[in-house]
Design a binder for these strands. Sequence first.
DNA 1: GTCTATATATTGATAGAC
DNA 2: GTCTATCAATATATAGAC
Lengths: 203, 203
Amino acid sequence: MTISQAVARTAKASAAKSEASDQNGGARQILNATAWLLRHRGYEATTTRAIAERVGIKAGSIYHHFPSKDTIVERVINEGVLVVNKAVTSALDALPNKATPRDRLQAAIKAHLLSSLEHSDYTSASIRAFAFLPPELRRTCRVERRRYEDIWQQLMRDASEAGYIPKDVSLDAARLMLLGAGRVPIDKIATDFAQIAFGARRA
Amino acid sequence: MTISQAVARTAKASAAKSEASDQNGGARQILNATAWLLRHRGYEATTTRAIAERVGIKAGSIYHHFPSKDTIVERVINEGVLVVNKAVTSALDALPNKATPRDRLQAAIKAHLLSSLEHSDYTSASIRAFAFLPPELRRTCRVERRRYEDIWQQLMRDASEAGYIPKDVSLDAARLMLLGAGRVPIDKIATDFAQIAFGARRA
DNA sequence: GTCTATATATTGATAGAC
DNA sequence: GTCTATCAATATATAGAC
């Protein structure tokens, strides 16, 4: 089974499952609504009133569950990377000792993709809204994010040393392609992408 | 000269040039300030007061030059893709008739990268802030954006038919990697990237 | 062309009734 | 646990002096 097929196959299952997590308590409903808004509308458009409307309550009622808007946002962003982190770590641990760097990289990619789809609002929120968070909140969320990025940095380094990645391609480019563009210059990614995909070395 | 070297070489030149465009009239200063803010802080954080502060005037004075905030934002976003559009189109037109699809793709990539660096605040604003614009404004800006995307769609299709891109890789992925992740599922990009770079077909 | 002052709307958050 | 009502801060935008 190719990665594409695995991803497509799981897409339907995750769509059905996303409703199940709505059955949880009021706090979870608020988190779900916030994740959706962060993903599709961004941080500033994720107002307390917008969150409340999606849940079906009034804005003031939110503060019975959470002390502030940023507390909610922080939990959503962190859950987004935490859940993917666990999935990738588990997948790597389950690999036999004789797995090659390439095996490990592919297992990590697969685990990342499947897990991202299962929790897609949270993960997408982590990726897409992160760059425009207020500076203080961004600093807080960077801790958990960095923890996950380190896993990939190591995977990429191993793959690079094993010769799977052209030497003049930044390891950051590939890693960040999985974790979202974030604050990365898109041009740097494009350059490396061109080199990887088309061997564009004589421009 | 590789693309990387061309990009690096032009980076300094563009840094020096960016000040030159500040010498223009008051309207241009406002556009420059807005472009910087959209790129680095996002749409909602780009307030009229923040724009005014960067220009060195008061918020109310902006409305002598523009009728509304969204008018300014729309011009910045559209200029960002328009200027790159022109650069790429010119580069393609300058190519000899016997240029292969690969030649054309590489010329387009180079023109895109160099032009992006020259106008990096405007281009970055177009890429990074677009996804979170208010729905109505996003609809307006999509027109100019689509015009540019169509160029790449054609380039990619030609390159694909000539055999430069694996057949099961979405043409969208490569195109959008140049124009920014936008509303594209990052997972789709990651999948295709994995297939291109690592041949990850047995996951 | 910029300023001050202000109108109006919306934000995050709080207080107290139920 | 949710509501209504409200506060203080900040947003876009306007009006008129200079």
